[in-house]
Design a protein around this nucleic acid. Structure first.
Length: 567
RNA sequence: GCGCCCGUAGCUCAGCUGGAUAGAGCGUUGGACUACGAAUCCAAAGGCCACAGGUUCGAAUCCUGUCGGGCGCGCCA
């Protein structure tokens, strides 16, 4: 276990060694917990070494000592640790920072260890993996996916890849809202479009769906069934006809969504139908249980869930006066079911748009009532994507036609640029998407900067192989240039970055990282010849190139972006 | 009115759970290819980190308030 951590995550290993070296000292100061919980960060590149810690200053604030004096004592303790002394030099600086200058041999051997791990570098294996159900996108099957869905798809899928890479067992799921009034209205719209297609008089219902897409779906249905339903449409479509259009329409829309998501490199492990919760009786059972436990009561002709008891602002309706269940009712059944499936998920994550954040307290309250003491579902709120048209900012809306579809996005700028663009910014900030600019500026997308580094390296490696490059032993290489140091250090932090991206649910850390790593590589490349260097340097640098290539490829893979060998 | 998110360079955004002189890309200006890929590199210019208080040895980061923007506050989903 320790050996594994040592080889796959040098920085973590180093962190622990430092903590161990000063453990007794901190104990004596009455501050033992600091050893396992101090900050260690890459030093700002101004002659402050490779890494720095502020632990002496933190200790000083707790023990009342002089920070620089404490730093001196901490350094003495570290120097007394032979293993640590072999890895680094020390320096007390500024108000009490301890700077670490890693020794060349340590950097070189850490880099070679990382290289040996290949595409597993940065990953973790867990003995008891968490079983996570990660739900995202979950669009209504009544239209096309738009850029907002694309954002959550890119985010959710990246998060899935990252969490899995960190040793968790992750199942991704698309919850299909194929029940309720919106579906009814979609079915009615399709019936009307189909009728119009056949030359019949028919009007789209007032609450129906405008635009081209329903017409397209109706057209596909007509291709399948011809005019067979003609006589079920007048004077108004029969209930059976509407039901048919609803069901078949839903299937067609979902198939198109799945294909489109596949093109976007987002493959769901599971598609879960809301209607199925009613068909199977699961929804009814949950409602019965709530009644039995006294959580659900009748009032004003409706059935209410007393969520206010569990932290919600007010109670919520489960079954309306008209007898129809609300979305909330099936959602409770859905979430309860997640915990009862055979996979026995230990943790639930939902990715929702900011327009649903008012719903969070409600679902958490419901789960608290049903499963007291269980881990609460984790809800991640992603901010919205707006469309900019002619300088005006508009919310994405199916009905108003102000939307950029996923398919337009992919046709316009491509999968790699779209995915990189969408995960590159924190899910906490809103995105404005101007398709005109996006198309014009797509070649400026930073994804190409990163991919170019990958292609460049691939080209060097190919050249080396084609030219019969003969490596020599370079384990003792110890004359690192400034650029090599920087590059190795960037790489050694990769496992920490992945871990942070997973823990904080922030995939954008990987795109940011990949850009920085690419920059370190380009600088290195410019100043340090690889194949033309002295044999030992050339051998080492070629390995360093391989390591950078692996690390860039992994960073990109974790956000679903390709790493081309040539471009 | 209440709740959540955001406000950092001309523009788009990073800034890790508080650390040293706040970073990158685009744009602007000036340099670097008979070279392993110039889709690159180097340099310059550009900042009251919205504003006001507070906590701290130390705040862009945490707390309170104000202003500005987005999103919610349905027996819609």
């Amino acid at each position: 276990m320790a050996a594994r951590a040592e080889s796959s995550d040098f920085i973590l290993f180093f962190y622990r060694r430092v903590g161990e070296a000063v453990g007794n000292l901190l104990d004596g100061w009455g501050f033992p917990e600091l050893a396992g919980n101090y900050t260690l960060e890459p030093a700002s590149r101004r002659g402050h070494g490779d890494m720095a810690t502020s632990m002496a200053m933190v200790a000083a604030s707790r023990t009342g000592g002089n920070p620089r004096a404490l730093a001196g004592k901490l350094v003495e303790a570290m120097q007394a640790d032979d293993g640590l002394e072999k890895l680094t030099r020390f320096e007390v600086a500024g108000p009490g920072f301890i700077n670490f200058h890693l020794r060349e041999a340590a950097l070189v051997s850490a880099a070679l260890d990382a290289l040996a791990l290949g595409d597993r570098f940065g990953s973790r294996a867990q003995e008891n993996p968490e079983k996570i159900l990660l739900e995202f996108v979950s669009a209504n099957p009544t239209g096309q996916l738009h850029a907002g869905h694309a954002r959550y798809a890119a985010y959710g899928d990246s998060l899935k890849r990252i969490l899995a890479f960190l040793g968790n067992h992750v199942t991704s799921e698309f919850y299909i809202n194929d029940f309720g009034s919106q579906m009814e209205s979609f079915g009615a719209t399709l019936a009307a479009r189909y009728a119009q297609d056949l030359g019949l008089e028919a009007e789209i219902p007032a609450d129906g769906y405008r635009g081209e897409y329903p017409r397209h779906v109706a057209g596909r249905i007509r291709d399948e069934i011809g005019d067979r339903l003609r006589d079920r449409l007048k004077p108004a479509p029969t209930a059976e006809a509407v039901d048919f259009f609803k069901r078949r329409g839903c299937e067609i829309v979902l198939a198109e969504m799945e294909a489109e998501l596949g093109r976007f490199r987002v493959d769901f492990d599971s598609w879960f139908s809301e209607a199925g919760l009613y068909a199977s009786g699961a929804a009814a059972r949950v409602i019965e249980n709530l009644k039995k436990d006294g959580h659900a009561v009748s009032r004003e002709g409706a059935l209410w869930f007393k969520t206010a008891r569990f932290g919600d602002d007010k109670d919520r309706v489960l079954i309306r006066k008209n007898g129809e269940p609300t979305y909330f009712a099936s959602d409770i059944a859905y979430h309860a079911g997640k915990l009862e499936r055979h996979e026995r998920f230990s943790h639930l994550i939902n990715v929702w748009g900011a327009d649903h954040h008012g719903y969070v307290a409600r679902i958490k309250a419901a789960m608290k009532a049903l499963f007291p003491g269980r881990d609460e579902p984790e809800v991640i709120i992603g901010q919205l994507v707006s469309v900019i048209e002619k300088g005006e900012r508009k919310q994405m809306s199916k009905r108003k036609g102000t939307m950029v579809t996923l398919s337009e996005l992919l046709d316009g700028i491509g999968v790699d640029a779209a995915r990189f663009f969408l995960v590159d910014r924190s899910h906490d900030s809103a995105i404005d998407l101007d398709m005109e600019k996006a198309r014009l500026k797509s070649e400026e997308n930073p994804v190409y900067y990163v991919q170019y580094a990958h292609a460049r390296i691939s080209s060097i490696i190919k050249k080396a192989e084609a030219g019969g490059f003969k490596p020599v032993d370079h384990a003792g290489y110890d004359t690192l240039s400034k650029q090599e140091r920087q590059l190795i250090l960037s790489i050694l932090f990769f496992p920490r970055v992945v871990q942070g991206a997973g823990d904080m649910r922030e995939p954008h850390r990987l795109t940011v990282y990949s850009r920085e790593l690419a920059a370190s590589f380009h600088t290195f490349y410019h100043d340090c010849p690889v194949l033309k260097a002295e044999p030992e340097a050339a051998s080492f640098r070629l390995d360093l190139c391989r390591l950078v290539r692996n690390t860039i490829a992994t960073s990109l893979r974790l956000v679903g972006v390709s790493a081309p060998e040539a471009m």
